[in-house]
Design a protein around this nucleic acid. Sequence first.
DNA 1: TTGAAAGCGGTACCAC
DNA 2: GTGGTACCGCTTTCAA
Lengths: 349, 349
Amino acid sequence: MNRKATALDVAKRAGVSRSAVSLVLNGRGDGNVAKESQERIRLAAQELNYSPNAIALSLRNQRSRVIGILSDEVVVSPFDGNIIGGADDVARSRGFVTVVMDTERDTARDAGAIETLLDRQVDGLMYVTVGLKPLEVPPGMERVPSVLANCYDAHPRPRLHHVIPDEVTGGREATEHLIQFGHRDIAFLAGSEDSPASPLRIEGYREAFASTQLPVTEARIAHAGWDIDDGYKGAMRLLDGVVPAERPTAIMCANDRLAVGVVLAAARLGLSIPGDLSVMGYDDEHRIANTMVPALTTMALPLREIGREAMTRLLDAIEDGKTTTAEPTVETMVPCRLVLRESTGPEPR
Amino acid sequence: MNRKATALDVAKRAGVSRSAVSLVLNGRGDGNVAKESQERIRLAAQELNYSPNAIALSLRNQRSRVIGILSDEVVVSPFDGNIIGGADDVARSRGFVTVVMDTERDTARDAGAIETLLDRQVDGLMYVTVGLKPLEVPPGMERVPSVLANCYDAHPRPRLHHVIPDEVTGGREATEHLIQFGHRDIAFLAGSEDSPASPLRIEGYREAFASTQLPVTEARIAHAGWDIDDGYKGAMRLLDGVVPAERPTAIMCANDRLAVGVVLAAARLGLSIPGDLSVMGYDDEHRIANTMVPALTTMALPLREIGREAMTRLLDAIEDGKTTTAEPTVETMVPCRLVLRESTGPEPR
DNA sequence: TTGAAAGCGGTACCAC
DNA sequence: GTGGTACCGCTTTCAA
């Protein structure tokens, strides 16, 4: 645990002053420091394995090249953290590092976490959530450039830019895919009512029907929840003991877990997929959608893209020196992506 | 974006010197500063909403009360991050904060991430992995107290303490549970061969048979992989077209996803669970094991506990001022926990 | 009881 | 072309 070399150590070894070391190592040596000295300095730095102390730098420069990411529960929850992955990708490529803090959905911890991050001189803040949701923006976020990923300012006059998936289009395109396969009676197992994603996806579902001049049967839309057993129960309600002519020929699910439940129910009932019934997921959850039997056709959430886009926005704001606050555009929508696999097919007729 | 109040601001407002402010606010006012001044200082601090600058503190004290957590992929992967959650719990309760960096399984990034963390004066380091695995301990971790969670030093003479689940006992108790239900022909769908967890769980399986004087049929143990389709295929191999008398009456799976595949296969084959077949999972993956239909009996991985235990070790070492290196004990095992749900039952006979 | 001053590790300005 | 020095915000020692 021997202490790290400091600029002074390097200076001594090279027989110059600290200032010279600083200049040279920051690329402003030419025209200020003799070529000769430059060489010696670089060598000494090498030998001592010198790298500047980030803390001292932050104190001096009042900025740290660190971006704080606050997560509601993406670290701890069993959902993938690709938003964070994408955000980190672009941060690193632009010379920033990210540190994340997870509040485990305890919003009371938000302010404290932000305070901590701010105290450590983060240059910007990103709030990221597992599911699309309105956010009570915690105090403190307005003090540095900030951005919202997968959530949006619940305030009537939003102050922070947010990046979210285009759920309406996602819902529409998923439905269109099924309609193109000839399905007309398509049930929609939506998530729970309290999620803002549900109504948006339903809206897309309606749009798809409307643009094809097809009527929507309200009874086919049901709020089911988000889990496997919810999907199972929903499917049983739709299929069990119902004569084939009155069964929907396709079931759209608001996420892949629901779809797993539907497939399970179909298996119990002896229905083949997609022969007797098409099943469509949503999210493209890694290691669920792609490994199900049959593999799930699904609407992929562009998580990685959301993270990349949000971080790009944020860094642009930071490097322009202006806050994202009061920017002209407050919302970026990222399109979802249809992933064709094996659980959907032509309607049986 | 008005600048935060500094100790100097407080001093001015209270009409004292910066030193007095420091003394008082750190509880060493009595006997050094007049009661009167103390009151004024506290008041001024309050009014200015003063909190010390963490960066300056770190620079001055050479410690930050920050613990760096390096994750192979627990943030980004679709597995829950309860190890990190548990670690954070105890860190916060002891006045530390954690920041996590995820390398997305790119070990080439390990050293850089640790360097970054070290540069920011973290007081300690924790490396955490999604699955149990040997670790090439990245350089730099020996420079501050460090601990390994869910992974262990691959070095012949390990230098870092690690906290891992007791997989052998887990495998044994899972098997015993099935044996107690009267099962004798128990198939084991192990994970992939390259995971260190697989052989350990298999060892437990063998122990259970041995202690009950039951013979192990080698052909009943198969490395299948870790995903739903792997479980499906494995189950089909065991069950499809096999006369009841030759079918295993229970299938133990090395994780819950495999169990989902097995349940799916059973449903397709018209086998009822647990009536015709008992299925046992492993991990207790949240929102999979507990929401499956039927809900999965499983062996829960003590993730939260591992995190708590590892962080406790680490902070103890930090506060004792000694490195975990060269501690007497190098390994802590945390027991797994049997979770009884609906997918296992008496053998059909 | 108080305040002045040094120092943590850098950067940048300014004389020389 | 070079080195001295002030300053970022805080703690701690020491002299008054």
